[in-house]
Design a protein around this nucleic acid. Sequence first.
DNA 1: TAGGCTTACGAGCTCCGTAAATATA
DNA 2: TATATTTACGGAGCTCGTAAGCCTA
Lengths: 127, 127
Amino acid sequence: MELRDLHSLIGISETGSLSGAANKLNLTQPALSASLKRLEAELGVLLVRRHSRGAELTHEGKFVLQKAYDIVREVAEVTSVVESFSEEPVGLVRVGLPTTIAAGLITEFFHCCGHVFLRFASMLSKP
Amino acid sequence: MELRDLHSLIGISETGSLSGAANKLNLTQPALSASLKRLEAELGVLLVRRHSRGAELTHEGKFVLQKAYDIVREVAEVTSVVESFSEEPVGLVRVGLPTTIAAGLITEFFHCCGHVFLRFASMLSKP
DNA sequence: TAGGCTTACGAGCTCCGTAAATATA
DNA sequence: TATATTTACGGAGCTCGTAAGCCTA
């Protein structure tokens, strides 16, 4: 099953037609029609009832739609959470200084940056 | 994000190496390596730490792994539930018979199969 | 040296868009 | 006739497998 095809189903549900969904998803109508057809073929059921005034989801289509929302939401959650990981870097920081320099700077250095180390430490001890 | 790539991550976790995962998923090692690389590139983080004795998931990798299990499970659920829908076929059945044959068989035929038609009728009348 | 991962590259497949056909109100 | 979906078809992009290279215990 392809995530793309689940998005197609969601688009159809939200716009009420295949052409509307195609427009919303920046696809052409035939491409979206094929996407839906793939999903239906894979599941072995009719998901959308087409008629000349748009389209409506079948009973099975509505069930799959609910699951599609869940799946798409979880995928989005992974993406956003992991991206926030890289915004707040987690790891080990080593600071090296020549002894003669360190002797004069180390006290002032911790005055400035100690809270950063404490924050890192609390993050690392969590899981 | 591709479901296939999430399966790759799961395979790596369960076998402890890229080659093991490739074997498990009926892929070659380079194909699985590329799959993992795609996922890491899309999320912008290192998910697996490779060393010459297999591989292990990073902190971020373990997080994505848990979500991958959830997503894959939900997808499997959709498939199995919808397939159980189609195990109970819904549709229109037409039975054609030559008049001379039908005249003699129709009564007995309905004695045998009438309850099936009634069952279909009740299913079709649902929304 | 052996086991494991990566890079390079060519082939097959999939999916998309354009264009034409079909169906319904 | 106008709107909506489907079919036909050619091309671009993607993913896979094979082969070769690299690294570490």
